[in-house]
Design a protein around this nucleic acid. Structure first.
Lengths: 339, 339
DNA sequence: AGACTTATGCTAAATGTGAGCATAAGTATT
DNA sequence: AATACTTATGCTCACATTTAGCATAAGTCT
C-alpha cells in the first residue's frame, strides 16, 4: 500500500428522537468542505459557508476496541449524549462522492450508524441542534397528504431530466427508475424506497450536494437552473440520513424498535404518532390499536394518562415477552392509497 | 493519527450459487492466521493449518474508485468470476475478533459483500472451490426436519453454557437469548436469526473460531472440551457468511433477488427448490405456485421443460413489470411449524 | 398395463387487514 | 348544567391472504 493512499475511517451517526410528533436528528453546523481532516479529532472550519452535518468523528485504531465504542465515545464528546440503541447502516467509500478526496488526497471511508433516543435526552453544551429529518427529505412526509414539493418542483424537474437523456434508450432507463422510485405511471408510492429516491435525485442533479460535487469536478455547470430540493448536508451525510430512514421504516415492521423512541409508558396514540412520524403516513387508529394490542407488543399498566383533551387514555408499556412468542414483532405499514 | 495505527480495509465476498438444490459459496483454502498482510495484493500462506476462507482482498485506495469496483476487481483475479449482483452486508472492525491484530498491529476493517451467481458460472484456474453453506452452519438447514446436530450437540452444550454462568442473573440473560435465538421454551424457530445464532455460539465458545481467538489471548483454555459446531473459517468469515444468510433470507421476502440465482427460464419447482435451499425449509408446492404466479412475479413462456420424471412442467421467466406494480415483490416464508 | 413421478387446478377453513359505526369518558364552551 | 368537542375504546362487516388438502393431468419407469 503506497504512502499516498492512506485511508481515513469516519463514523457518522444519525441520532434520532421523536418529539412533538416530529422525527428529529442531531445536526452540527459546519463549514462545508473545509473541514480539516481530523488528525487529532478536532474540527477546524474556516467558515466559508455553514452547512448542516451529522455528528461524526474518526475511528482511532489505537484506542477504540470496536467501531461501536468509537462511535459512542465521540458522540459523547461532540454532543454530550450517551447513546443507547445503535445500529450500523452502511459503509460508503466512493471517491467521486466526496469533494475532499480528489486525486492524491487520502481516501475517506464513512460508516453510517443509526441511534435511537428517548425524547428526554439532554444535549450537552455544544452547537448540536435537533432538526426535523423531513427538512432534508421533504418529499418523504405524506402525513398531511401528498407533499406539495412533488408537484411543484420535483416531478417537473424529473420530467426534464428524463427528456434530456442522451438517447431514447437512456431516457427509458431513467423513466423506469423514476416510475418505481416515485410511483409514477400507476405504480404505488413505496414508503421504503427512501434511499432510492435520494440517490436518483442526486444523479439527476436535483439536490444541492450534486451541484456541489460537480462544481468541484467541472469548471462551471449549466444545470445550475435545476431546483435544489430539501435542505442540503455536508459530505454524503444526507445519503446516510436517507439510508437511516429507509432502514428504520423497514425495521419497525419486524422488530420492536419504536419503543426505543418512547418513554417507558405511553398511550397508544403516542405510540401511533411516533410510528406515523417515522413512516411518513397516517394510520387507522382502531386498526393500529388492534395490531399492537392483539399482537402482544404492549400491555396495559392500568394507569391512566393525564389526558390531553378528551377521555383519558390507558398507559401501556412494551411487552418484552413478545420477543419469545413471535418471530417478527413489529407494526406493518399498509400500502399508501393512491393519491 | 499515529503511525502505529494504520488501517487496512479488506473486502470479503460471499459468492453464492445454488446448484443441485444446494446453496454453495466459493471458498479458498488458506493457511489460518498466517496470511501475510496484502501489501501488494498477493497472499502468502506458510501453511500451518489449512482452513476455508472467503475470497477477500484489500481496498486499494489509489486504484479503486468505488468499493464495489474494488471487490469485482480482485474477485476476478482470485477466482476468475465476473460477479453480477452485489450487495454490501456489514463492516466489521472489532479488534478482539481477529487474532492477527493484537496490540500494536495494524487495524483491520472488513467489509462483507454478498454476490449472487447463476449456476453456470465458470470458476477460473484457481484453488477456489464451491462448498455448501450449510457445512458451515449445519443447524440452519431444516429442509429434512429438525437438524440432528441440535439435539445431539448444540442444545446440551448451550444448556451447560447457561449453567456455568457467573450468577443467577447472568444465567437468566443467557437463557433469554438462547430462548429467542434457538426457539426454546415454546418460542418458534425463526429462520431469519442466523446471525444471532452464530454470534451466540461464538460467545458460548461452541465454534472453532472462538477457541482459536481465545487461545491467542489466553495461554490455554479449559473449555477445550466444548464441541466445535460446523466447519470453521478463517478470520471472521463465518460471521460474514451468517450475515449473508440472514440478509438473503430476509430479502427474498420483499425483493425478487432469487432470480439472480436461476437461469433465464425455469420451472416453478426449480424456483421453489432454490427458495427452499436459501430458506432452509420446505414449502407447500401449490401455495408457492399461487404466490409467485398470482403475485405477478413470473410469467409462463409456453414452452415445456424436458421433464425430470413426471409430467413436463411449463417454463417460466421473471416478470420484470412486477417491480412497478407491487412495492414488495418477493416470496414470503411461512413460520416454521413447531417441530 | 400398472406403479410412480411431477404438474396443475381448485376449495374449505382460518387468519389477517381495511374501513367504519357506535359508545365511553373526559375537557371546553355557553 | 347543558352542549359541543375531544380522544379512547369496543365491535363488526367485507375482503384479501394464507394454510392445508383433495383431485386430476400427463408424463416416466418397470
Amino acid at each position: 500500500m503506497s504512502e499516498s493512499s492512506q485511508i481515513f475511517v469516519g463514523l457518522n451517526a444519525v441520532i434520532l428522537a421523536v418529539t412533538d410528533e416530529e422525527p428529529r436528528i442531531l445536526t452540527l453546523r459546519r463549514g462545508d468542505h473545509s473541514v480539516v481532516l481530523p488528525e487529532d479529532g478536532s474540527l477546524e472550519a474556516p467558515p466559508a459557508e455553514l452547512i448542516d452535518g451529522l455528528p461524526f468523528g474518526p475511528l482511532d485504531p489505537a484506542r477504540d476496541r470496536t467501531l461501536e465504542l468509537a462511535l459512542r465515545a465521540w458522540v459523547r464528546e461532540q454532543t454530550g449524549i450517551e447513546v443507547g440503541y445503535v445500529e450500523q447502516l452502511y459503509t460508503y467509500g466512493d471517491r467521486n462522492r466526496d469533494p475532499l478526496e480528489r486525486e492524491g488526497g487520502p481516501r475517506i471511508l464513512s460508516i453510517g450508524y443509526l441511534s435511537l433516543c428517548r425524547e428526554d435526552v439532554v444535549v450537552g453544551a455544544t452547537q448540536a441542534r435537533w432538526r426535523p429529518w423531513y427538512d432534508y427529505l421533504p418529499w418523504e412526509d405524506w402525513r398531511n397528504g401528498r407533499p406539495a414539493i412533488l408537484d411543484k418542483l420535483l416531478e417537473p424537474a424529473l420530467k426534464t431530466w428524463i427528456e434530456v437523456a442522451q438517447d431514447r434508450r437512456a431516457a427509458q432507463l431513467r423513466r423506469d427508475r423514476v416510475d418505481i422510485a416515485f410511483g409514477w405511471g400507476g405504480a404505488p408510492w413505496d414508503g421504503y424506497r427512501v434511499l432510492d429516491r435520494y440517490e436518483l435525485l442526486y444523479e439527476a442533479g436535483l439536490v444541492g450536494e450534486a451541484l456541489r460535487d460537480r462544481r468541484a469536478a467541472e469548471p462551471e455547470g449549466k444545470a445550475a437552473l435545476a431546483p435544489r430540493l430539501g435542505r442540503p448536508m455536508c459530505f454524503d451525510h444526507r445519503r446516510i440520513l436517507a439510508t437511516a430512514v429507509s432502514r428504520l421504516r423497514g425495521k419497525i415492521k419486524y422488530r420492536p424498535v419504536v419503543f426505543e423512541l418512547l418513554p417507558p409508558t405511553f398511550t397508544l396514540l403516542q405510540l401511533q404518532r411516533v410510528v406515523e412520524a417515522l413512516a411518513g403516513q397516517r394510520l387507522h387508529k382502531q386498526n393500529f390499536r388492534r395490531l399492537v394490542e392483539k399482537g402482544g407488543l404492549v400491555e396495559g399498566t392500568g394507569k391512566l394518562s393525564a389526558g390531553t383533551g378528551g377521555r383519558p387514555a390507558e398507559l401501556f408499556r412494551f411487552r418484552h415477552g413478545v420477543l419469545r412468542e413471535r418471530p417478527t414483532p413489529g407494526v406493518g405499514l399498509p400500502a399508501l392509497p393512491e393519491q
